Simulated scan of single mutants.
Amino acid sequence: MAQERTGVATFKGNPLTLVGPELKAGDKAPDFKLNANLLEQVSLANYAGKVKLISVVPSLDTGVCDAQTRRFNEEASKLGENVVVLTVSVDLPFAQARWCGAAGVDRVVTLSDYKDRNFGQAYGVLINEFQLDFRAIFVVDANDTIQYVEYLKEMTEHPNYEAAVEAVKKLV
């Protein structure tokens, strides 16, 4: 049975249970299988040699998640070719593609954890009560070592965008 963490996250003040370990800077980034579309799965190896800013959101169709993804899409254009910005949610790939088209988001790679929630469990962001991934930011260097982590305490709050972008800039 996967590790469960209580007392670390809330949704509108109500406690949530997160499944999986709490990752820290210096940890090796866990591998994952995420859907780029309905048929194609990708893993950490697909982004080998690149700095990865992984933005985790519960659903693109909510206000903070929408704003978070748009913000990182803007930042992505300034970070250079050696950086990839991944947005992970459990939204279906169809919904992610629709949202990106409507929002004009073209620099962020959206990946779906809908199939078996393996990313959520590996990165310690799976919300047991909702089976969604909790808001978090991971910056992973070109050698797949985590250099920056932010697990939000409250699901409806924004991450520290500036700190995440600065962590990326130190690596490029």
Rank of each mutant, 00 (worst) to 15 (best):
L152N: 07
G104E: 08
M1F: 06
L23I: 10
T17D: 10
E4S: 14
A167E: 08
Q3F: 04
P21S: 15
K52G: 10
A95K: 00
D31E: 10
V140S: 08
A97F: 03
A122Y: 04
L53V: 06
L171S: 04
T10W: 00
A164S: 12
R98F: 00
Y151E: 01
L44N: 00
A29K: 10
L16V: 09
V149Q: 00
R135W: 05
R117Y: 14
K28Y: 06
V139T: 06
N73S: 11
C65F: 02
S59A: 15
L132F: 14
Q68K: 02
A122S: 13
A29N: 15
D91I: 01
G26L: 08
A48D: 08
L53F: 04
E154M: 13
D66M: 02
L86Q: 02
V149H: 02
Q41M: 03
L86C: 06
Y148E: 10
D133L: 01
D27I: 13
Q68A: 05
L126A: 07
G124L: 02
L23W: 07
A36E: 09
Q3V: 13
K12A: 14
S89E: 00
V149W: 00
N37W: 15
V42C: 09
L60K: 00
A167S: 10
V19Q: 10
E129L: 09
A167G: 08
